[in-house]
Design a protein around this nucleic acid. Structure first.
Lengths: 259, 259
DNA sequence: CCCGACGCTGTGGTCAGACCATAATGGTCA
DNA sequence: TGACCATTATGGTCTGACCACAGCGTCGGG
């Protein structure tokens, strides 16, 4: 009766406890699967189930082979888990795409307003990456998916500048989870070049409002930007199911420089 | 080379594809683990790893035995995954508690403003549950954890009334993920009864602002309510690590009536 | 003829053992 | 001295076995 906890939960709890106790820190290696199994008195398969969860949640990354970089390693900067969670929930009809968009709207407007307010207060902002991305997006040779990827990076960099990692991860997850729908919506646009022109203008407007230290204007600019795009692609309502993104639930390192 | 996808990902993708294709719907039963294994050409252990992920993410619930209610069933209303994800990320130092609180602030103020705006527009609101919860919280015999649990329910019911399931789940996850810190902060309060009195007054204020159809007032009321509590308990900065909540990563049915 | 007890069967939960692929490491041999 | 290869530790996977549990059906007694 008291021992109705499943074996894999034991492992999960153990790892969580070690994290809270500081025994495990980002960058650390977990004991090997076989060692964990014997230590905790469970089978290796149970350990693996727990590690799989941690991997999908973006807490660890695993690598085969030997040496310091092998095994399960606590990931320092999370990013992947939220996307997987939200995307699957959307797939399971637990979340509506419109709700995802609305939530994104709330978070992003808040980010923009925060940045603008900070600018108004004279605080320095880390917007060089955002601006570099905008420049990169001027390239007319970009395909829609490439452009949209940079667009996502732009929005992420704004969140990054605001400094709240939870918002960063959540926004990225929200965006990723409907990535397929966003791309699928492109053909619905009357004109892709026109859409790009509009998006770029709006991007500049957002940055301008932020630099001007005008939170209200920044908020409105972001709102119109996002709501406008989804309205134009008809995603505010419901969209045809996109093909499941090629890599489904990979923890997605999300690394790499801008260029 | 082309087949570097791990076996469990195959399963995850398959389930996701079935969900998107409508082959699987909430309430449906997945094929048995053994059947899935042979169908997809993977071992049963790989199937189990994938199912474990789906379970923790809150997409399925599993039950032993036979009959229609056994096996893995697609959960209709998700709730659990977000908590597990956020809590573990906090544990892994991926997220700071202060960021969690800030994010909650953004979402909840938005919810309150939305409700107020809707009330101003004459739309009917589903606030009977919220009001019932407030009445239940008047009971002076409640212990701090009990009171805080009802408090959480109150906030959740507001989000529920706003209708955005993503916000509902995210807010619940944010709250749950720092549940331990919230409870641990109670002793820091100068006076628990005074705190309760204040919280209740603020709750009433929030509802009053919503009913009055005053978005700004509603937003401010929520902001002061939440920020005030965390400031009083000293959680805005950093808190001592709480003991990992007794049940760590259980999918948490989250069922049950108010009473 | 009705009804309860009991065994059958299918389900997830778990473990043990065996292989494989991979990659760092260190010893060996030219 | 330096390139090469066996060793070894690690995750990734499969197979088969067993357990606990919960319906369902059968069989026997009333």
């Amino acid at each position: 009766m008291t021992d109705d906890t499943r074996a894999w939960q034991t492992v999960l709890r153990s790892v969580e406890a070690d994290l809270l106790a500081g025994v495990l820190k980002p960058g650390d290696r977990l004991p090997g699967e076989r060692a964990l199994a014997t230590d905790l008195g469970v089978g290796r398969s149970s350990v693996r189930e727990a590690l799989r969860v941690l991997e999908v949640l973006g807490l660890i990354r695993t690598a085969t082979g030997s040496g310091p970089s092998s095994g399960a390693i606590i990931v320092s900067t999370p990013r992947g888990g939220m996307s997987a969670l939200l995307r699957l929930q959307v797939a399971a009809s637990g979340f509506r795409v419109a709700d995802i968009v609305d939530t994104r709207l709330v978070l992003e407007t808040s980010v923009a307003a925060t940045l603008a307010a900070r600018a108004a207060a004279g605080a320095p902002l880390e917007l060089t990456e955002a601006e570099a991305l905008l420049d990169a997006m001027e390239d007319a040779a970009l395909s829609p998916p490439e452009f949209l990827a940079l667009d996502a990076r732009f929005h992420a960099s704004l969140a990054e500048a605001a400094g709240n990692q939870v918002v960063v991860a959540t926004m990225a997850g929200l965006r990723d989870s409907i990535e397929g729908y966003v791309v699928a919506g492109v053909p619905n646009l009357p004109s892709w070049p026109d859409a790009v022109a509009r998006l770029m203008r709006e991007h500049r407007d957002i940055l301008a409002a932020v630099h001007a230290g005008d939170p209200t204007r920044a908020r409105d600019a972001v709102h119109d930007h996002i709501a406008g795009y989804y309205a134009a692609t008809g995603l505010s309502e419901s969209a045809s199911a996109p093909t499941p993104s090629t890599d489904s639930t990979t923890p997605t390192p999300t690394e790499g420089p801008i260029a």
